[in-house]
Design a protein around this nucleic acid. Sequence first.
DNA 1: CGGAATCCGATACGATACTG
DNA 2: CAGTATCGTATCGGATTCCG
Lengths: 124, 124
Amino acid sequence: MSFSHFDAEHCFINKFTTLIAGKWKPILLYLIQNDINRFSLMMEHVPNISRKVLTEQLRGLESDGLIYRDELKSKAPKVVIYHLTEKGEKLRQLVDEIIRWGMTYDKEEVPDEMKKILDSDFAQ
Amino acid sequence: MSFSHFDAEHCFINKFTTLIAGKWKPILLYLIQNDINRFSLMMEHVPNISRKVLTEQLRGLESDGLIYRDELKSKAPKVVIYHLTEKGEKLRQLVDEIIRWGMTYDKEEVPDEMKKILDSDFAQ
DNA sequence: CGGAATCCGATACGATACTG
DNA sequence: CAGTATCGTATCGGATTCCG
């Protein structure tokens, strides 16, 4: 078994982690997965993120082909909706699994309130 | 459904990605999972990593409780072996799943040689 | 063998003000 | 509404040298 291929650029696990590298990208992906898919909505739901950084992270996800911008052609108030691309959809399941792992990883750290939210998010 | 809890520190998906944040941490975890578990071994298998950075990343994984240092009490040539902790073991399956995702994510990007290596790694 | 210490440059992140 | 533009800070990764 050779690991010489596992440099930072070509290792598969790093392929994943570099795709979602960035303090907010994972959250943003998760939000978009759940239709929190507009700039102002994300600003509301993500505390303490600046406009600049939000823009940067979204652009990063876009240039990695995980999301795309749907800019509606209305005049006055600009409307932009973000969606997962086909590539991004392939991440959905993995993202969900990571959240499930987070819930069982350190059970005492999960506040009850959060458990309820997550249960209602994923149960159906 | 509320997402107000999904700040960078408490979001579960970010809990994961911050644990393994760092250019080499994912690879190092994977190597240790597969018993490439000594400083010099890792230096060989990870191209272009410096001693300093390797040390830092290992210390990071250690202080996050994912690995522990087993420093053998031999005299002259120091021997240190890294192992997964119980906490780290809980990541093993997820790490493997991410690698599998990587293999199917962009099939044309996977060189045949790599496929064989991965097949033999995981088949049994 | 397995580090520690120092220095340095490149990003990444953040606060703020302005705009089509 | 959904961004730019500018500036400042901090953290990270890398090269090198020295050590028990």
